[in-house]
Nucleic acid binder design. Structure first.
Length: 298
DNA sequence: AATGGTCAAGTCAGC
DNA sequence: GCTGACTTGACCATT
């Protein structure tokens, strides 16, 4: 089991998620920012390697405005060498990579303009991973999308859109159960129709489910991953005490995490910690894993 | 250097 | 109808 965290490292003094305002766009500003972001990503990956954190989610802001019409710059060509070198580092240390396009990317939208920009953004994500020459175990995770007052039709629209995706996007895409619209059951139904792997979100499943236990839910999701998709990915968080239901924890709750481990003794999964203090919790989780008797290697 | 208004993009719940 | 939440506050004009 690999442990990971998303996008930001607060220990390494290097911000690899730098962006800028649209009206400040220039090719020069873009190249400077991307150069910075790639250099920081490399530093963060090296920090992760030193600390045995071998799962990482790369920020969608790596190349700001990459899919925006304002950007005519050939960032793919200009940064292909740097991206390739990053890919070398990732492959050399067998780091698992994911990306998570943000909330504006909605594959099942009824609106043409939203679909079009979503497809461009997905293409950007897949191009990044392709330029790093990562295999299809590097994934792009999406939620199913909106309900629009008609779940069945909206699920059908997702299925149809997925089937018509470019293969380079299709092979990387996975769907994740969310905590208010589409639960595990819906994702499994979409898997049945398309073969798309289902990334199990442990915390969301506690908030929204149809009665499956957490371990059963996780097992059902894990079965949707083929060998070319790699080890099933799982998102993990726990409830921030005293905040509204569904609020992600500030830091790893050792009690909740031990419970997670106890419920999943096989641990044939890669675990993304969606916890606000990022690498600190990843380190806590790894330490806890090492110190617990009966818990494996690393 | 500190501050505060504002930022490409969608959808939904809660008020 | 507006605001906040979402994987993540940070950019930038102004003082």
């Amino acid at each position: 089991m690999k442990i990971g965290y998303p996008c930001i490292n607060r220990t390494v003094k290097c911000n690899g998620n730098k962006t800028f305002r649209l009206r400040s766009y220039s090719d020069q500003r873009l190249t400077e920012t991307v150069q910075n972001n790639l250099a920081c990503l490399q530093k963060v990956l090296k920090y992760n390697i030193r600390h045995n954190i071998l799962f990482f989610r790369i920020s969608s802001d790596l190349v700001p405005f990459a899919s925006h019409p304002v950007c005519k710059f050939d960032w793919q060509g200009h940064f292909s060498t740097s991206l390739n070198e990053l890919g070398d580092l990732i492959r050399q240390h067998d780091i698992r990579i994911s990306m998570h396009p943000d909330q504006f990317i909605v594959l099942n939208t009824p609106r043409d303009a939203v679909l079009e920009s979503s497809l461009l953004e997905l293409r950007y994500h897949s191009q990044l991973l392709d330029l790093m020459e990562l295999d299809t175990t590097a994934k792009i995770q999406l939620h199913v999308g909106g309900v629009y007052g008609d779940r069945d039709t909206s699920i059908k629209r997702f299925i149809d859109r997925y089937k018509h995706l470019e293969p380079v996007i299709q092979r990387r895409l996975v769907i994740e159960n969310d905590d208010r619209s589409y639960q595990l059951e819906d994702c499994l139904r979409i898997h049945q129709a398309t073969g798309i792997p289902v990334l199990f979100d442990w915390f969301h499943h506690q908030v929204l489910n149809s009665g499956e236990s957490l371990p059963d839910g996780l097992k059902a999701a894990a079965r949707t991953w083929r060998s070319e998709d790699g080890t099933p990915m799982v998102d993990y968080s726990s409830q921030e005490p005293g905040k509204i239901r569904g609020k992600h924890a500030q830091t790893l709750d050792p009690h909740d995490f031990r419970n997670f481990l106890a419920l999943n003794p096989k641990r044939d999964l890669d675990l993304m910690l969606e916890i606000k203090d990022k690498e600190k919790s990843a380190l806590k989780a790894l330490k806890l894993l090492r110190n617990e008797t009966g818990y494996i290697k690393n």
